[in-house]
Simulated scan of single mutants.
Amino acid sequence: MGKVVLVTGVARQLGGRFVRRIQRDPDVDRVIGVDAEPPEHHLGGAEFLRADIRQPAIAKVLAETGVDTVVHMDINGTPLGHRGSRGSVKEVNVIGTMQLLGACQKAPKLKRLVVKSSANVYGSAPRDPAVFDETTAPKSLPSGGFAKDAVEVEGYVRGFARRRPDVAVCVLRFANILGPCADSPLAEYFSLPVLPTVFGYDPRLQFVHEDDAIEALRMAASTPRRGTLNSGTFNIAGDGAVLLSQCSRRLGRPTLPLFLPTVTWAGSVLRALGITDFSPEQIRMLTHGRVVQTTQMRETLGFHPKYTTAETFAEFTRSRVPGLLPPEALARTVDRLAALLPAHGGPTQ
């Protein structure tokens, strides 16, 4: 008998793609996709069970299916298809995770738990280190939004790991996931015709391609190979970093530098209009940036991303509607202005 894998959050594109991918693993015998909403995409040969992980009934699902591996992907920053509210998303992220972990604790056949977390747990602050590793504590804990959800989720997962030391627990802290099917607040931000930015700041950003995200999850859910260990907490990101100004040039979208209070106000307006979830935590990231170290990802987990951060953004750019300005012309104009500023005593970066 091969492994029985249960995957949460399969109604989203990333969850659906992972389900289709994990079925091809030779040691996987059965895949069960779970979500409160039926997926609009196909799941290959996987079974779909309509179940809300916020409800105690999820324990019955694990008990009846004999699951030995759980991949928890139903932790997100936005509602599915923009249906629902921030409150409903938090309930799924936090209450749903609590219920799922309670069910996992009672599942005697469970051997492996993989959790899709986020590098948002590190927050974004002016005195942050240049690079976060897995042991770095944030200067200030996220005060709200998806980042706070991720911190709470990881706390519950650590509690579960202490109660079930027989289960291999792997937490993957993903950098911003981008790609042709990306569905995230940052992808929505980059789709705006003009990008609001914080005056005087040009943050470093880091991305992971959705294909690499799926492969990292698959590796974490698989039987460990010699020399690898798929348990623990790992940062997952493509090599390198890019500046926000470079992103705007490559997209062909002009920026609109605003003072921080104005950006905060603009974010609240965009959220109220339903255009994008321009949350305070995203504003902090677009002010101070965030870069994570991936040494443990390579040396301990044994995962090597196919795409760098720059290549990930290039793939994402090709999947978007072209911006208002040709990227090449925008880049030349910005470079010329930057070259002129020192000659006239202007500010330099």
Rank of each mutant, 00 (worst) to 15 (best):
V10K: 04
G16R: 03
V19T: 07
V19A: 08
V19I: 00
R20Y: 02
R20G: 00
I22C: 01
D27C: 04
V28K: 02
E37T: 08
P39H: 09
E40R: 14
H41R: 10
H41E: 14
H42C: 09
G44H: 09
G44M: 06
G45F: 05
R54E: 11
I58H: 03
A59H: 06
A59L: 10
K60N: 14
A63Y: 05
A63P: 03
A63E: 15
E64K: 11
D68G: 01
T69C: 01
V70A: 06
V70G: 00
V71R: 05
M73P: 00
G77L: 09
T78Y: 03
T78M: 08
G81I: 05
H82W: 12
R86P: 09
R86I: 04
R86A: 11
G87Q: 14
K90T: 13
V94E: 02
I95K: 13
I95F: 05
P108S: 05
K111C: 03
V114F: 03
V115I: 14
S118K: 06
V121W: 06
Y122A: 02
P129T: 11
F132M: 14
D133W: 12
D133Q: 05
E134K: 13
S143Y: 04
G144M: 11
G145V: 00
F146D: 01
D149G: 03
E154H: 02
G155I: 11
G159D: 11
F160S: 00
F160T: 08
A161G: 09
R162Q: 12
R162G: 10
R163K: 11
D166R: 07
D166H: 03
V167W: 07
V167M: 09
A168C: 05
C170T: 13
L172P: 03
A175D: 06
I177M: 12
L178W: 04
L178F: 14
G179Q: 01
P180W: 10
S184W: 11
P185N: 12
P185G: 11
Y189V: 05
L195F: 08
L195S: 06
V198P: 02
V198L: 07
V198A: 05
G200T: 07
Q206M: 10
D211W: 04
D212Y: 04
E215G: 06
A216V: 02
M219N: 03
M219V: 15
M219Y: 07
I236N: 03
I236E: 04
A241G: 08
L243R: 15
L243V: 00
L244N: 12
C247R: 02
S248Q: 05
R249T: 09
R250V: 04
G252L: 04
T262L: 14
T264C: 09
S268E: 13
V269R: 12
L270Q: 01
L273P: 04
I275R: 09
I275Y: 04
T276S: 13
D277R: 13
F278N: 00
P280E: 06
H288W: 15
H288R: 06
Q293W: 07
Q293D: 14
Q293L: 12
T295I: 07
M297N: 02
E299D: 12
H304G: 00
P305S: 10
A310W: 03
F313M: 15
F316Q: 12
T317G: 13
S319P: 09
V321P: 10
L325F: 10
L330A: 04
R332V: 08
A338L: 12
L341N: 12
H344S: 11
T348V: 13
Q349Y: 13
